[in-house]
Design a protein around this nucleic acid. Structure first.
Lengths: 254, 254
DNA sequence: GGTCGTTGTGCAGATCGTGTTTCATTCCGT
DNA sequence: ACGGAATGAAACACGATCTGCACAACGACC
């Protein structure tokens, strides 16, 4: 599912800026808890797990969570009870793990206020997708009027975050590829600080630089052309020989 | 995020200042009433329900509502009668629940001034999305002074909400299928923001994308053709490679 | 049961983005 | 100056992604 690559990047960015989402997994099966921890953590989420209601409540009181993954079938206290208890505390999003893909379960789950449910046995990737969808819905509705950064202005240019596009000083759109946008954003966010190729590569692609890796150079070159910033006597993106690149300009966040 | 104290206070504040939307659900099926109450309430809405016209009128006179969800098929007094009666009282937004594919009902309902309709059996999330959309339209224009949004104008085209139809710049109707209308509305409502396929699928069908899901692509393609917006150099619906689609145009709500 | 309209899937081809290669140019220490 | 290392930029190549078409599936309506 390559097509949500940019969304992944966006999530990554948000994680760094705000806080990576923190998931509470409640399941009695140790294997599942471990599997989920590993898997979700590999996908930029923090995970805490609990084996039953008692542990869940204890853990709950000690941390802040963004979403709960809850097994409906627990020994002792039922998952439904835990859901009810959670609901009495907050309106945190809940994803239920149910036994059968039965519609009855779904209705019950939704009545109790689950935001989604996943049938067991489940595919971790599917659960991840649903977690993301639920988190997205949760944040989308709340950050309507929120004072987020909408655009970044520098040297007459404007980068619109929501639309992922760049306007030149005359206000005309200059089309950027995904990679170019990411690079520019990375530079702007650390304006006036030198970024090594390693850092940029790690930031943008999450990989290490090979021995003769010119990827960043080329990306910078292409971005410079679009910014009408000639490479030899570049004004905006200055190269630091043996060091990396700096975006040299006053930036204003709005 | 939602569950922390700060945000709870904020929500509380919002509730008091703006009033959480108050929904009146009119349906004879007890299960549906309960399901909707639970589901909507945990999505920050107040819900009152009535099982028939008599109860609806009684409840109506005792409270103040922002939107009505109305089942068309009621025993005794028809849903259409209730809609007519509601219309004689106010211009409160109405969302109709219709039996699957009953086109006649749909037409009548829309002519009576329903703001949207949802086919039964429905996905609660889809209904929620539509409720939010209708409420958003209603309040947005209220703030601008005059009444409800009747149509959305963009790049010369006009989308008539009440009649669910599209007029080209010359004023001629271009017939849209249900899915095409929904897609266009979803794009218009978030104009100039990138929507991933996941989001669109979630918004339109309440489901998540499979690994080779081409549904959205095709839908966009077909919509583009009707909008005379050639795929390769599309002006209205731009594709964001690896990201999704954006409707790029100034939109005016009336 | 047949037909039509709508929506999803598979496939082939076109397009676009990005890394690599290559070579010219610049920088800097010697 | 000279030469090696670093950088800029054009050309190329490959893969990922998008589009359009044809067809299949599905349900509604007659």
């Amino acid at each position: 599912m390559k097509h949500d690559l940019h969304n992944d990047r966006f999530l990554l960015y948000k994680c760094i800026m705000e806080q990576t989402p923190h998931i509470l997994v409640i399941d009695d099966d140790r294997e599942i808890r471990d599997l989920l921890s590993k898997f979700l953590e590999r996908n930029q989420m923090r995970v805490t797990s609990a084996r039953d209601g008692r542990e869940a409540r204890r853990v709950w009181s000690q941390g802040h969570y963004h979403l709960v993954v809850l097994d409906l079938m627990l020994p002792g206290e039922s998952g439904l009870d835990i859901a009810r208890w959670l609901r009495s505390q907050t309106n945190i999003p809940i994803i239920m793990l149910t036994a059968m893909g039965d519609d009855t379960d779904r209705i019950i789950g939704l009545e109790l206020g689950a935001d989604d449910y996943v049938a067991k046995p489940f595919n971790p990737r599917e659960l991840l997708a649903r977690i993301r969808a639920v988190l997205r819905r949760a944040t989308e509705t709340q950050e309507q009027g929120n004072g987020e950064v909408r655009e970044i202005v520098f040297a007459g240019w404007t980068l619109e975050i929501a639309r992922r596009r760049l306007l030149n000083p005359a206000g005309v759109e200059v089309p950027l590829t995904g990679g170019e946008y990411d690079l520019l954003l990375a530079l702007l966010e650390r304006a006036n600080r030198v970024l090594t190729r390693d850092m940029l590569l790690d930031l943008l692609r999450g990989r290490q630089a090979g021995p003769f890796d010119r990827a960043i150079d080329v990306a910078v070159s292409r971005l410079r052309r679009k910014l009408e910033d000639d490479g030899r006597n570049a004004q905006l993106i200055k190269t630091v020989r043996g060091g990396g690149y700096v975006l040299a300009a006053d930036v204003e966040r709005r």
